[in-house]
């Protein structure tokens, strides 16, 4: 067990969902992630914090192999989800991404109707046997993303016509609709106003009951509000990882303290 996790408390379960060991990421010659070990627990919100360019988004994208789409990117080390090595040759990254959903920094609804946006994942993975079942999946996903009441009367309207906060919740609904086990969120609130941010944060807390949620954020208040565990990245290193309360009140590493108090970053 990693010694940084000694102080953990207040976590619902101790099941480890994602285990990363010795992860190195290179962008061409640039060594972006240096030897990161981390265990992410099931049904927990884990926040990645750190200054811009510290590698937290890069590491997040390793967890569903989104870095495969970048030509110059190279990943070394082991990442296991439920004990299975996701970088094994037999693993289909396309299947993996259905299991590990992702919500992006900028809301990116497809140029389709709200309904088709949410039904996109279930359709390509064949999750619904018929139209009625698909309708149900879409409604459930929209309800879980707390946007159902706002869009139920205009499911055929284009998703791009919603407001920024609604678009982001639509994207969350879209990710939830494929029934992932892990939900990765890359700064999901950076393009939203405080009201929409509050709605999304509330939503993240609810999603914790079913999923392991990993969220990258620049806002330390947000990390403190929504997460149970926090990891601090700096210059490609995982500096400190532990109970959110401890990281913010009693950091062990001087760099963590400097960042949290606003001296570096």
């Amino acid at each position: 067990m990693n010694d940084m996790r000694i102080l953990e408390r207040d976590v619902d379960t101790n099941t480890i969902k994602i285990a990363a060991r010795g992860v190195q990421v290179y962008y061409g010659d640039n060594h972006a992630i240096k030897d990161v070990d981390v265990d992410i627990q099931d049904k927990t919100v884990t926040a990645f914090i750190g200054p811009s360019g510290c590698g937290k988004s890069t590491f997040l994208r390793c967890l569903n192999r989104m870095n495969d789409t970048i030509d110059v990117c190279r990943v070394e080390g082991d990442i296991h989800i439920d004990g299975e090595d996701i970088y094994d040759k037999r693993v289909d990254p396309v299947q993996l991404r259905a299991k590990v959903g992702m919500v992006f920094q900028k809301p990116n609804p497809f140029p389709k109707s709200i309904y088709d946006n949410v039904a996109y994942g279930p359709r390509i993975h064949g999750l619904a046997k018929n139209k009625a079942e698909l309708d149900e999946i879409v409604e459930n996903a929209l309800r879980r993303a707390a946007i159902w009441s706002e869009v139920k009367d205009r499911l055929t309207a284009p998703g791009t016509g919603l407001s920024g906060g609604q678009q982001q919740r639509l994207c969350i609904a879209r990710a939830v609709a494929t029934e992932p086990e892990v939900l990765l969120m890359d700064e999901p609130c950076s393009a939203l106003d405080p009201i929409a941010t509050a709605q999304v944060e509330e939503l993240i807390d609810e999603l914790r009951q079913n999923y392991s949620v990993v969220i990258v954020t620049h806002s330390m208040q947000q990390a403190a509000r929504v997460s149970q565990k926090t990891a601090f990245f700096h210059l490609g290193n995982l500096v400190e990882y532990g109970e959110t309360g401890n990281i913010f009140t009693n950091p062990e590493d001087p760099r963590t303290e400097s960042y949290i108090t606003g001296r570096i970053g």
């Binding site: 989104m66 789409t69 991404r97 959903g101 992006f104 497809f110 140029p111």
Partner: peptide, 10 residues
């Protein structure tokens, strides 16, 4: 857009 689609396992 592409990332969003890849991220859903397309």
């Amino acid at each position: 857009m592409r990332d969003g689609s890849f991220g859903l396992g397309a």
